[in-house]
Amino acid sequence: MPEYVAFWGCYIPARMPNIEAASRKVFEVLGVSIEELEGASCCPEPVISKLVARKLWTALAARNIALAEAKGKDIMTLCNGCYETLFEVNHMLKEDAELRNEVNQVLSGIGKKVEGKIEVKHVVEVLGEDIGIEKLKEYVKRPLRSLNVAVHYGCHLFRSAKPDDEDVWKKPRLLEELIRVTEANLVEYGVERLCCGYPARQANVEFSLKNRLHVKLKNMRESNADCIVLACPACYIQFELGQTELRRYVKETFRIPVLHIMELLALSFGISPDEIGIKLHRIPVKNVLEKVKI
């Protein structure tokens, strides 16, 4: 079975152990071997640090890549932000020899080097391509047929090395396919591609909630979504915390549960909600569990 170095990022281990627990259970069921990346730092995050300190952003990401190269295994991320940073830096270092030399000059001070030997994959690629959609269907013990799911792709899931539509949409389509594996119904709500507003909240929380999150939530509710499924912990925070924060700015109240794709898969694989810490959600997932009769 495939083997990867897991890059958990910062949010999942430190704020959302439920996602980590669900992921580890799913990998265990699938027989996917995951190794820890000892000594990993923050990826670092791909918006502020990339803009404010591009040299540091590149060098720290390169160090994480060098750690994985030393293990000879591809990196798997469960966060769109980590994916963006590690994928982009890995791609740049492979393509741009001059940059690679510059970065290796910095890394030489700590005895490390990037050679461009590994790939960086998002978990939706690992599951949808390396394992395969048809194979995954064999593990579904508890189909979530009655569940209406609104998918939120997350902007960084569109990161691609090639500027063609097919490649840009590959991972978002894989996320949809993974939701279909669970036999849940994907509802269309019209603004799937819109950003959740997480990056904008760094500058203006009100704008981020009213002009991004609220727009998405209204459309999701109108489409009768029982829950939101995504593949990014930053978007997860924006949807979970943001629904509470939004009450300060709008008269409507939203309580739509938010699940990471790994939690949805875990539930469909028959894993107990308690084992994956489903009670840790800020917005209770009770209605989801009731609807799928768990």
Binding site: W8, P13, P17, N18, E20, A21, R24, E36, L37, E38, G39, A40, S41, E275, I276, G277, L280
Partner: peptide
Amino acid sequence: RRREELKLSSQLPTT
């Protein structure tokens, strides 16, 4: 502690 309740290691081997 919550991580341990979920049978996860209390810390990951990061920086």
